Computed example of a mutant assay.
Amino acid sequence: MEYQKIINTIFDEVKQLKDKGNIADYIPELAKVNANKFGIALIDNEQNIYKTGDANEHFSIQSISKVLSTALIFSKIGNELWKRVGFEPSGNSFNSLVQLEYENGIPRNPFINAGALVIADLMLEHFENPKEYFLTFIRELAENNTINYNEKVAQSERENGYRNAALVNFIKSFNNIKNHPDDVLDFYFYQCSIEMSCEDLAKLFQVFANNGIVPKSKFQFLTTSQCKRINALMQMCGFYDQAGEFTFKVGLPGKSGVGGGVVAIFPNYYTVAVWSPKLNKKGNSYYGLETLERLTTITEASIF
């Protein structure tokens, strides 16, 4: 498959579209990003890297990080995880409070904000220095020691994270948060602030396209069964309440973030990451989704 030619063609086509999206301005620090940035990186199962545009520029991955923290805790505690958080699509906005009332403080899945806060609580329970451990884990998988938290983004989220504060306190009222809410929020805000490039992101997600095995080291990070479940969560829940449309149009497991990043995997074939900061009404990158729909259409290959 001529992936470089394919992504070059897609890049040129998508750039010609009228970008109807808007940058995420509810986190003031994200609103400062150049809205015209656009990059694509694809890594195949033989470790060949194909990229174009702003594929090597760092950006805040935001909710994409939720896949990584969930996978880390899943590898640590196994199926005990699902006593604290569910694995069903939410059908509501990613920061909804309403659903928690009906479900007694058990978030519908780990990729909505409520679920990610429970995962953050578990990170505090199981690791002595969770922020340091998480960052080291990210750097190792992406093979890049320059990846770091963005202090300004984390602070910006803290100063404007009223709904997340409401969520974590509400969950604690159901005794599904064990640590102090401020500590849980601190980890969560830093987790979302991690910055990396499309190439880093594509490398990072190779483990999910490789049956839970880290390609370079051959380390079995997740069992085959665990990897299957993380991929299923990405398929069902990776794009907020647009997950069904993404499955219909693209047909790959993936995850988006309000920083404009989108990552998707084709198990045993490739991982692909796209960055374009303008978001559609559902909070997903407008160019990102257009790019991935074209990729699976041109290659005539998806998981279905």
Rank of each mutant, 00 (worst) to 15 (best):
A154N: 01
N129A: 13
V118Y: 15
Y149K: 03
T146L: 10
I119W: 09
L135H: 03
N129K: 15
E159Y: 10
E157I: 13
A154R: 02
F134N: 05
E157A: 08
L124H: 01
G161K: 02
E151F: 02
N145Y: 00
R158I: 06
T136M: 02
L117G: 08
E128A: 15
V118K: 13
E159S: 12
K131Y: 00
L117V: 08
E151P: 00
V118S: 12
A120R: 01
L135A: 07
Y149F: 14
L122G: 13
T136V: 09
P130Y: 04
V153Y: 01
L117Y: 01
A165S: 13
H126P: 05
N144R: 02
Y133A: 12
L135V: 09
N129V: 09
Q155K: 07
I138T: 05
N145Q: 03
A165K: 07
L135F: 01
R158K: 15
F127W: 11
F134L: 09
L141R: 06
Y133M: 13
I138E: 08
T136C: 04
T136S: 10
E140K: 10
Y149V: 03
R163D: 09
A154H: 01
Y162R: 03
P130R: 06
A165F: 11
T146K: 08
K131N: 07
Q155M: 06
R163Q: 13
L122H: 10
Y162W: 06
E151Q: 15
A116W: 04
Y162Q: 05
N148Y: 00
Y133N: 11
S156Q: 10
L141F: 04
T146H: 08
E140I: 02
R139W: 01
Q155V: 04
V118A: 11
N148R: 04
N160I: 08
M123S: 08
